[in-house]
Protein backbone atom coordinates (compact mmCIF):
# COMPACT_ATOMS: atom_id res chain seq x y z
CA UNK A 1 0.00 0.00 0.00
CA UNK A 2 2.75 2.33 1.06
CA UNK A 3 4.70 1.52 -2.06
CA UNK A 4 1.75 2.32 -4.27
CA UNK A 5 1.33 5.74 -2.70
CA UNK A 6 5.02 6.53 -3.11
CA UNK A 7 4.87 5.36 -6.73
CA UNK A 8 1.88 7.55 -7.32
CA UNK A 9 3.67 10.52 -5.78
CA UNK A 10 6.73 9.95 -7.93
CA UNK A 11 4.59 9.62 -11.03
CA UNK A 12 2.76 12.83 -10.14
CA UNK A 13 6.03 14.67 -9.55
CA UNK A 14 7.44 13.43 -12.85
CA UNK A 15 4.25 14.38 -14.63
CA UNK A 16 4.43 17.89 -13.20
CA UNK A 17 8.09 18.20 -14.17
CA UNK A 18 7.59 16.92 -17.71
CA UNK A 19 4.42 18.86 -18.50
CA UNK A 20 5.03 21.93 -20.68
CA UNK A 21 5.55 24.96 -18.41
CA UNK A 22 2.59 27.31 -18.26
CA UNK A 23 3.41 30.68 -19.76
CA UNK A 24 4.70 32.93 -17.01
CA UNK A 25 2.23 35.62 -16.13
CA UNK A 26 3.35 39.19 -15.62
CA UNK A 27 3.16 39.99 -11.91
CA UNK A 28 1.58 43.41 -11.53
CA UNK A 29 1.08 45.50 -8.41
CA UNK A 30 -1.32 48.43 -8.70
CA UNK A 31 -2.30 50.96 -6.08
CA UNK A 32 -6.03 51.39 -6.78
CA UNK A 33 -8.90 49.17 -7.95
CA UNK A 34 -9.56 51.24 -11.10
CA UNK A 35 -6.02 50.44 -12.29
CA UNK A 36 -6.64 46.75 -11.59
CA UNK A 37 -9.81 46.95 -13.72
CA UNK A 38 -7.85 48.49 -16.59
CA UNK A 39 -5.11 45.88 -16.29
CA UNK A 40 -7.82 43.21 -16.36
CA UNK A 41 -9.20 44.64 -19.62
CA UNK A 42 -5.82 44.97 -21.31
CA UNK A 43 -3.82 41.97 -20.10
CA UNK A 44 -6.77 39.62 -19.34
CA UNK A 45 -5.28 36.38 -17.97
CA UNK A 46 -1.71 37.30 -18.91
CA UNK A 47 -1.31 39.23 -15.66
CA UNK A 48 -1.51 38.41 -12.00
CA UNK A 49 -2.72 41.61 -10.33
CA UNK A 50 -2.44 42.65 -6.67
CA UNK A 51 -4.20 45.82 -5.56
CA UNK A 52 -2.85 47.67 -2.51
CA UNK A 53 -5.77 49.98 -1.65
CA UNK A 54 -9.34 48.97 -1.14
CA UNK A 55 -11.94 50.94 -3.09
CA UNK A 56 -13.61 52.40 -0.01
CA UNK A 57 -10.32 53.36 1.61
CA UNK A 58 -9.04 56.95 1.62
CA UNK A 59 -6.76 56.91 -1.46
CA UNK A 60 -4.44 59.45 0.18
CA UNK A 61 -3.75 57.26 3.14
CA UNK A 62 -3.57 53.52 2.72
CA UNK A 63 -2.50 51.55 5.79
CA UNK A 64 0.62 49.64 4.72
CA UNK A 65 0.73 45.98 5.69
CA UNK A 66 3.77 43.65 5.64
CA UNK A 67 2.43 41.70 2.66
CA UNK A 68 2.71 44.83 0.47
CA UNK A 69 6.49 44.60 0.60
CA UNK A 70 6.43 40.93 -0.39
CA UNK A 71 4.15 41.69 -3.33
CA UNK A 72 6.41 44.50 -4.56
CA UNK A 73 9.48 42.27 -4.28
CA UNK A 74 8.06 39.82 -6.78
CA UNK A 75 6.47 42.35 -9.11
CA UNK A 76 7.46 42.80 -12.75
CA UNK A 77 5.34 45.91 -13.03
CA UNK A 78 4.15 48.58 -10.60
CA UNK A 79 1.41 50.92 -11.83
CA UNK A 80 0.52 53.93 -9.70
CA UNK A 81 -1.90 56.83 -10.08
CA UNK A 82 0.89 59.33 -9.41
CA UNK A 83 0.72 63.10 -8.88
CA UNK A 84 1.63 62.51 -5.22
CA UNK A 85 -1.61 60.69 -4.44
CA UNK A 86 0.39 57.74 -3.07
CA UNK A 87 3.14 59.89 -1.52
CA UNK A 88 2.26 58.67 1.97
CA UNK A 89 2.73 54.95 1.41
CA UNK A 90 4.35 54.02 -1.91
CA UNK A 91 7.86 55.55 -1.53
CA UNK A 92 8.72 53.65 1.69
CA UNK A 93 7.27 50.48 0.17
CA UNK A 94 9.44 50.84 -2.96
CA UNK A 95 12.48 51.50 -0.80
CA UNK A 96 11.94 48.46 1.40
CA UNK A 97 11.01 46.21 -1.52
CA UNK A 98 14.36 47.02 -3.15
CA UNK A 99 13.25 45.59 -6.50
CA UNK A 100 15.15 47.27 -9.39
CA UNK A 101 12.49 46.19 -11.91
CA UNK A 102 9.89 48.54 -10.42
CA UNK A 103 12.06 51.38 -9.14
CA UNK A 104 11.01 54.84 -10.40
CA UNK A 105 12.58 55.33 -13.85
CA UNK A 106 12.78 51.59 -14.55
CA UNK A 107 10.79 49.86 -17.29
CA UNK A 108 8.44 48.30 -14.80
CA UNK A 109 7.40 51.55 -13.10
CA UNK A 110 4.38 53.36 -14.52
CA UNK A 111 3.06 56.70 -13.25
CA UNK A 112 -0.32 57.17 -14.92
CA UNK A 113 -0.53 60.89 -14.11
CA UNK A 114 2.17 61.40 -16.77
CA UNK A 115 -0.34 60.41 -19.44
CA UNK A 116 -2.90 63.15 -18.75
CA UNK A 117 -3.03 66.93 -18.35
CA UNK A 118 -3.54 67.79 -14.70
CA UNK A 119 -5.60 70.75 -13.52
CA UNK A 120 -5.10 73.03 -10.49
CA UNK A 121 -1.31 73.15 -10.51
CA UNK A 122 -0.43 75.29 -7.47
CA UNK A 123 1.90 78.28 -7.79
CA UNK A 124 3.53 77.46 -4.50
CA UNK A 125 3.37 74.46 -2.23
CA UNK A 126 3.26 74.91 1.51
CA UNK A 127 1.72 72.80 4.18
CA UNK A 128 -0.09 75.88 5.48
CA UNK A 129 -2.26 75.66 2.36
CA UNK A 130 -3.35 72.18 3.37
CA UNK A 131 -2.61 68.89 1.71
CA UNK A 132 -1.73 70.20 -1.75
CA UNK A 133 -0.31 68.02 -4.49
CA UNK A 134 2.50 69.95 -6.23
CA UNK A 135 1.80 68.31 -9.61
CA UNK A 136 -1.86 69.36 -9.63
CA UNK A 137 -5.10 67.63 -8.72
CA UNK A 138 -4.43 63.85 -8.83
CA UNK A 139 -8.06 62.65 -9.19
CA UNK A 140 -7.93 62.76 -13.01
CA UNK A 141 -9.54 59.36 -13.53
CA UNK A 142 -12.97 60.80 -12.63
CA UNK A 143 -13.17 62.42 -16.08
CA UNK A 144 -14.14 59.53 -18.38
CA UNK A 145 -12.37 61.21 -21.29
CA UNK A 146 -9.05 60.83 -19.44
CA UNK A 147 -9.40 57.08 -19.33
CA UNK A 148 -8.25 56.25 -22.91
CA UNK A 149 -4.86 57.96 -22.40
CA UNK A 150 -4.42 56.09 -19.13
CA UNK A 151 -5.40 52.77 -20.74
CA UNK A 152 -2.89 53.41 -23.54
CA UNK A 153 -0.10 54.01 -21.01
CA UNK A 154 -0.90 50.68 -19.37
CA UNK A 155 -0.97 48.81 -22.71
CA UNK A 156 2.38 50.39 -23.63
CA UNK A 157 3.89 49.23 -20.35
CA UNK A 158 2.73 45.65 -20.91
CA UNK A 159 4.07 45.68 -24.46
CA UNK A 160 7.47 46.84 -23.13
CA UNK A 161 7.66 44.13 -20.47
CA UNK A 162 6.26 41.29 -22.59
CA UNK A 163 7.11 41.96 -26.24
CA UNK A 164 5.71 38.62 -27.40
CA UNK A 165 2.26 39.59 -26.17
CA UNK A 166 2.29 43.11 -27.59
CA UNK A 167 -0.22 42.25 -30.32
CA UNK A 168 -2.72 40.83 -27.83
CA UNK A 169 -2.46 43.87 -25.57
CA UNK A 170 -3.01 46.15 -28.56
CA UNK A 171 -6.09 44.18 -29.60
CA UNK A 172 -7.54 44.24 -26.06
CA UNK A 173 -6.83 47.97 -25.78
CA UNK A 174 -8.60 48.69 -29.07
CA UNK A 175 -11.60 46.66 -27.96
CA UNK A 176 -11.75 48.60 -24.67
CA UNK A 177 -11.38 51.97 -26.40
CA UNK A 178 -14.14 51.13 -28.88
CA UNK A 179 -16.52 50.22 -26.08
CA UNK A 180 -15.42 53.27 -24.11
CA UNK A 181 -16.17 55.59 -27.02
CA UNK A 182 -19.77 54.43 -27.12
CA UNK A 183 -20.18 54.76 -23.34
CA UNK A 184 -18.48 58.18 -23.28
CA UNK A 185 -20.88 59.55 -25.87
CA UNK A 186 -23.75 58.22 -23.76
CA UNK A 187 -22.38 59.83 -20.60
CA UNK A 188 -21.73 63.12 -22.41
CA UNK A 189 -25.38 63.16 -23.41
CA UNK A 190 -26.67 62.13 -20.00
CA UNK A 191 -24.70 64.83 -18.20
CA UNK A 192 -25.87 67.69 -20.44
CA UNK A 193 -28.61 68.62 -17.97
CA UNK A 194 -26.00 69.08 -15.21
CA UNK A 195 -24.36 71.98 -17.01
CA UNK A 196 -24.07 75.12 -14.89
CA UNK A 197 -25.35 73.53 -11.68
CA UNK A 198 -23.47 74.52 -8.49
CA UNK A 199 -22.27 71.91 -6.01
CA UNK A 200 -20.25 71.76 -2.81
CA UNK A 201 -17.91 68.79 -2.31
CA UNK A 202 -16.15 67.41 0.77
CA UNK A 203 -12.61 67.29 -0.63
CA UNK A 204 -11.18 68.50 -3.97
CA UNK A 205 -11.97 65.07 -5.32
CA UNK A 206 -14.58 65.58 -8.03
CA UNK A 207 -13.04 68.55 -9.87
CA UNK A 208 -12.39 66.59 -13.09
CA UNK A 209 -15.87 65.08 -12.93
CA UNK A 210 -17.40 68.54 -12.45
CA UNK A 211 -15.33 69.97 -15.29
CA UNK A 212 -16.55 67.22 -17.63
CA UNK A 213 -20.22 67.51 -16.65
CA UNK A 214 -20.13 71.31 -16.61
CA UNK A 215 -21.02 71.54 -12.93
CA UNK A 216 -19.59 74.41 -10.91
CA UNK A 217 -17.87 73.62 -7.63
CA UNK A 218 -18.44 76.55 -5.30
CA UNK A 219 -16.71 75.21 -2.20
CA UNK A 220 -15.44 72.32 -0.11
CA UNK A 221 -16.53 71.15 3.32
CA UNK A 222 -12.85 70.96 4.21
CA UNK A 223 -11.52 74.45 5.01
CA UNK A 224 -8.23 73.35 3.37
CA UNK A 225 -7.48 70.04 1.63
CA UNK A 226 -7.01 67.31 4.24
CA UNK A 227 -8.27 69.38 7.17
CA UNK A 228 -11.59 68.20 8.65
CA UNK A 229 -14.60 70.57 8.43
CA UNK A 230 -15.01 73.11 11.22
CA UNK A 231 -18.32 74.63 12.28
CA UNK A 232 -17.13 78.10 11.36
CA UNK A 233 -16.15 77.07 7.85
CA UNK A 234 -19.57 75.43 7.33
CA UNK A 235 -21.21 78.64 8.56
CA UNK A 236 -19.12 80.58 6.00
CA UNK A 237 -20.29 78.23 3.23
CA UNK A 238 -23.92 78.84 4.17
CA UNK A 239 -23.38 82.62 4.27
CA UNK A 240 -21.58 82.69 0.91
CA UNK A 241 -24.25 80.82 -1.02
CA UNK A 242 -27.74 82.20 -1.52
CA UNK A 243 -30.59 79.82 -0.71
CA UNK A 244 -31.66 78.02 -3.85
CA UNK A 245 -28.40 78.68 -5.70
CA UNK A 246 -26.98 75.26 -4.84
CA UNK A 247 -27.89 72.01 -6.52
CA UNK A 248 -26.20 69.34 -4.41
CA UNK A 249 -23.67 68.52 -1.70
CA UNK A 250 -21.42 65.59 -2.63
CA UNK A 251 -19.08 63.53 -0.49
CA UNK A 252 -17.07 60.34 -0.83
CA UNK A 253 -17.53 56.93 0.82
CA UNK A 254 -14.54 57.18 3.18
CA UNK A 255 -15.19 60.45 5.04
CA UNK A 256 -17.76 60.94 7.78
CA UNK A 257 -21.18 61.79 6.36
CA UNK A 258 -22.49 64.06 9.12
CA UNK A 259 -20.97 67.30 7.82
CA UNK A 260 -22.30 66.81 4.29
CA UNK A 261 -25.72 65.79 5.56
CA UNK A 262 -25.78 68.67 8.09
CA UNK A 263 -24.92 71.29 5.47
CA UNK A 264 -27.44 69.88 3.00
CA UNK A 265 -30.18 69.95 5.63
CA UNK A 266 -29.41 73.53 6.67
CA UNK A 267 -29.56 74.65 3.05
CA UNK A 268 -32.55 72.40 2.24
CA UNK A 269 -30.80 70.74 -0.70
CA UNK A 270 -30.07 67.06 -1.38
CA UNK A 271 -26.72 65.40 -0.72
CA UNK A 272 -25.10 62.33 -2.27
CA UNK A 273 -22.20 59.94 -1.75
CA UNK A 274 -20.25 59.52 -4.99
CA UNK A 275 -17.80 56.66 -5.56
CA UNK A 276 -14.28 57.85 -6.42
CA UNK A 277 -13.01 54.45 -7.54
CA UNK A 278 -14.12 51.02 -8.61
CA UNK A 279 -15.47 49.11 -5.56
CA UNK A 280 -15.82 52.31 -3.51
CA UNK A 281 -19.55 51.53 -3.31
CA UNK A 282 -21.08 48.12 -4.15
CA UNK A 283 -22.81 49.43 -7.31
CA UNK A 284 -19.50 50.54 -8.86
CA UNK A 285 -18.37 47.04 -9.83
CA UNK A 286 -16.20 48.04 -12.79
CA UNK A 287 -15.15 51.09 -14.77
CA UNK A 288 -18.42 51.39 -16.67
CA UNK A 289 -20.63 51.03 -13.61
CA UNK A 290 -18.38 53.51 -11.75
CA UNK A 291 -19.39 56.35 -14.06
CA UNK A 292 -22.96 55.03 -14.37
CA UNK A 293 -23.23 55.17 -10.57
CA UNK A 294 -21.63 58.62 -10.34
CA UNK A 295 -24.04 60.08 -12.87
CA UNK A 296 -27.04 58.30 -11.36
CA UNK A 297 -26.14 59.81 -7.95
CA UNK A 298 -26.01 63.40 -9.21
CA UNK A 299 -28.90 63.28 -11.72
CA UNK A 300 -32.24 63.75 -10.04
Amino acid sequence: MKVTIINLLIAAALGAALAPPAQAKTKVVVTYPYIASLVGEIAKDQAEVSTLAKGDEDPHFVVPRPSFIGKLRQADLLIINGASLEIGFVPPLIRQANNPKIAPGAEGFVDLSQAVDLIEKPDSVSRSEGDIHPEGNPHFILDWHNLPAVARAIADAFARIDRAGAGTYRKNLDALLARWKVKSAEWDKRSASLHGKSIIQYHRLFDYFALRTGMKIVGELEPKPGIPPTSRHIEDLIQANAPGSLYLVVTDPYHERKSAEGLAQKMSIPWAVLPQDVAAVPAAKDLVSLFDTMLASVLR
Binding site: H60, F61, G88, R127, G130, D131, G226, I227, P228
Partner: peptide, 8 residues
Protein backbone atom coordinates in the same frame (compact mmCIF):
# COMPACT_ATOMS: atom_id res chain seq x y z
CA UNK B 1 -6.29 69.21 13.68
CA UNK B 2 -4.90 72.27 11.92
CA UNK B 3 -2.43 70.26 9.83
CA UNK B 4 -3.40 68.36 6.67
CA UNK B 5 -3.85 64.62 7.20
CA UNK B 6 -3.44 65.23 10.93
CA UNK B 7 -5.24 62.07 11.98
CA UNK B 8 -2.78 59.89 10.07
Amino acid sequence: SRAPRGAE
